[in-house]
Design a protein around this nucleic acid. Structure first.
Length: 423
DNA sequence: TCTGGGGTCCTAGGACCC
DNA sequence: TCTGGGGTCCTAGGACCC
């Protein structure tokens, strides 16, 4: 018995979140920006239809913004994360077989619901999410995740589907594949679509019917799996319990380039500290730390990129230790005379925090440090993040490396002081 | 002037070992 | 002409995802 997957995808998620709390934005061109208000990362349908591209830098479309009075928002992840959780909670009322795929997408296993009308089931999911959160979603249903993605894409665009499309056992399946461009197939990016098109494969139907040997040669085993999935043979099961995380990154671009290592050291300390908090929250410890530093790749000025990998004698999640290592690494890779644009830390080789190997002497020290970290995390949880922080992360007066959000909406759902008022 | 951030998987090649 | 072979571990780079 082949499985049945549903992909539930929130439409224009970040923009929809803004619209829920500011209904005046509905029907208008609206965009949400990346960190430092750099690029467009979400668009309302109206913004899409006036030609604003995903990922484009804001400064390149200033005139379109002005001409069409596009409403512009900085990203507000506290709000989006909270809304995402609400959507997931509703989904799990419909089935326990939920895989949270990203902040705005989830796969469901509907294999047990085959006797029902799956389209109708989709409609009831969709309308409940709409009613309880205000977020519009689209739902694609099919025998594999890749086909469910395709169904979802059509459900999102076609008026006729009204947001839900079930392709299981459907005579419409070939047609659906034929109207899906090859670059819109899950797993086909820029490089692969270039190769496929140069071989006359322009849509998903042609890809499904392509010879295995051709695909294998250029796209390897990943390509073969895409073929299987398009043919209705599932290669990617539902991952209800995701495997443990393999790495944790904290990195930021600087709004303006920075030269001085003192400023970069502050930034790196803040990133290491944030990463350490993420480690402890996931009950993990790191064995490897990578620090990296780079100039602006978009500029023609002198370029520099370097990174340093360090392995610890035993696994760590202690903030002050991690800051120390990060600074050691930074001092090795920093070179005077460059204008730096981005820096970050990566933690790798993560292990669970309950079986650290230490000598008895180190053990005592370790227990003390652990208690300090627990108190640190408790305070920040209770009074808001950064209520306490390490001196190495710098004075609040130094704004040189801080990320900018000039057009941020209030944190309507996560901060008591910013609840929306009903007048 | 102004260009995000955080992930995963696969593959090839080097180091090292027996 | 021909220069051992095979396994493991690690890393870098490429490709993709949202």
């Amino acid at each position: 018995m082949p499985p049945v997957f549903a992909l539930v995808d929130c439409n224009n998620f970040y923009v929809s979140c803004e619209q829920v709390f500011n209904p005046g934005l509905i029907g208008k061109p609206v965009v949400v920006l990346s960190n430092n208000d750099g690029c467009i990362i979400a668009r309302s349908n109206e913004a899409k239809s006036i030609g604003i591209q995903m990922g484009i830098p804001l400064f390149k479309i200033r005139d379109i913004i002005k001409a069409h009075e596009v409403q512009v928002y900085s990203s507000n992840y506290a709000l989006y994360g909270d809304m995402s959780q609400r959507v997931i909670e509703i989904l799990s009322e419909f089935t326990h077989d939920v895989e949270i795929y990203s902040i705005d997408e989830a796969f469901l296993d509907l294999s047990g619901f085959k006797k029902r009308n799956l389209t109708d089931y989709g409609y009831s999911i969709r309308s409940k999410i709409r009613k309880w959160t205000g977020i519009p979603v689209s739902i694609g249903i099919a025998e594999t995740k890749t086909l469910a993605k395709i169904a979802n894409r059509i459900a999102k665009r076609s008026e006729k589907t009204d947001g839900v499309l079930d392709l299981t056992g459907s005579s419409y399946q070939d047609r659906a594949l034929a109207i899906t461009a090859v670059e819109d197939v899950w797993g086909v990016g820029q490089s692969y679509s270039g190769f496929l098109k140069s071989n006359g494969i322009n849509n998903a139907l042609q890809l499904r019917n392509a010879p295995d040997s051709l695909i294998k040669k250029e796209m390897g085993i990943v390509g073969l799996r895409i073929l299987q999935e398009l043919r209705g043979i599932s290669c990617y099961p539902l991952e209800q319990y995701p495997p443990p995380q393999k790495e944790i990154t904290v990195s930021r671009s600087f709004k303006h380039p920075i030269e001085d290592i003192a400023d970069i050291s502050e930034a790196i300390a803040a990133y290491a500290s944030k990463g350490a908090e993420k480690l402890r929250k996931a009950r993990l410890e790191a064995n490897i730390l990578v620090v990296f530093l780079m100039t602006n790749p978009y500029k023609r000025q002198a370029r520099y990129f370097n990174m340093k990998t360090m392995r610890f004698p035993f696994s760590i999640s202690d903030t002050s230790e991690l800051i120390k290592y990060a600074h050691t690494g930074l001092n090795e890779i920093y070179k005077k005379g460059y204008l730096y644009k981005k820096a970050g830390v990566i933690f790798r080789d993560l292990s669970s925090d309950n079986h650290t190997q230490m000598t008895l002497f180190d053990y005592k020290k370790g227990e003390q440090a652990k208690e300090v970290m627990q108190a640190f995390d408790r305070i920040n949880k209770r009074f808001g993040s950064d209520s306490v922080r390490y001196a190495a992360t710098g004075s609040t007066r130094n704004q040189k490396w801080k990320t900018v959000f000039q057009k941020r909406s209030p944190s309507y759902t996560t901060n008591w002081d910013q609840l929306p008022e009903v007048l």
